[in-house]
């Protein structure tokens, strides 16, 4: 034991400040919301419901529409492949507020693709999908790339259609990785704020999701905001634990 501390202790010691920095705000929210005597007002309950509804809808859309794209990007080279790969990652680093402006300019009433989605629940789902999609795509692309191509090829030599190969061979192999990508992506959608407030606005029961309620609650009702932060924190925690459990299972399955 002493030897281990001797060899690795310095690294841990150097790492402690940043670990403490990352942990303290989380602990602060946890302590404050556990100790809170506040009861959620109906407005905040609506925000929770809306958040879960929209983020589930978003992740369903992301998985349904994202999986084929991820498969295409992982398996085939096509014109502008590199550009497509970059564009797909862009929303991760794009400030969400900029994403919101982009959505308004693209899909607003005066946008390039004029729609009347702004200020509706649809806009909330669009904002979440835009911002959260890359997290799923990245995970799916990596999973597809890591799949053993020989298995797929031998199945198609046996006469299986491309869709049958995907459903019976690729999907079961990549399942855990896809699921963990989807959970990460869903958690990101749940926490979406900047793009939502700009593109969807803020109306209780319609577009006010949990992060928006937290932001406005910070100004008017701090206790509720803290409590809501606690709920989001707990959800995120469970999500990450689930992702890690899936990853562990995956690793054991391979070895």
């Amino acid at each position: 034991m002493g030897k281990i501390v001797g060899r690795w202790g310095w690294w841990l010691l150097l790492g402690l400040p940043i670990l403490a920095f990352l942990t303290l705000p989380v602990i602060a929210i946890a302590l404050r919301s556990i100790g809170s005597s506040a009861h959620l007002t109906p407005d905040f309950v609506q925000a929770i419901r809306l958040s879960f509804e929209t983020s589930f809808l978003s992740i369903v859309l992301i998985v349904l529409l994202g999986t084929p794209l991820a498969f295409a990007l992982a398996r085939f080279r096509f014109p502008l492949h590199r550009l497509a790969a970059v564009l797909v990652d862009l929303p991760v680093v794009l400030p969400p507020a900029a994403a919101g402006i982009g959505l308004l300019l693209a899909f607003g009433r005066q946008g390039y693709v004029p729609t009347s989605f702004a200020f509706t629940t649809t806009a909330v789902v669009m904002a979440q999908t835009f911002v959260a999609c890359p997290f799923y795509l990245r995970a799916a692309i990596n999973a597809f790339k890591a799949t053993d191509r020989d298995l797929e090829e031998s199945a198609s030599l046996d006469g299986a259609s491309s869709i049958a190969v995907f459903a019976n061979i690729t999907l079961p192999i990549c399942g855990a990785a896809l699921a963990s990508g989807a959970i990460t992506s869903w958690a990101r959608a749940l926490g979406e704020f900047g793009a939502t407030i700009l593109f969807a606005g803020n109306l209780i029961g319609k577009t006010q999701t949990m992060p928006l309620a937290i932001y406005l609650g910070f100004e008017s009702d701090l206790d509720q905001a803290v409590l809501l932060s606690g709920i989001l924190l707990a959800t995120a925690f469970v999500a990450i634990v689930a992702v890690r459990a899936l990853a562990d299972r995956d690793r054991q399955a391979i070895t």
């Binding site: 607003g108 005066q110 200020f119 969807a200 803020n202 109306l203 319609k206 406005l216």
Partner: peptide
């Protein structure tokens, strides 16, 4: 008719300027 309650006055103005409201 109210579709959004914005967090400050300039956000309201921007939505009207853009023609979204």
């Amino acid at each position: 008719a109210i579709v959004s309650r914005e967090q400050d006055v300039r956000s309201v103005l921007a939505k009207v300027e853009l023609g979204e409201a």
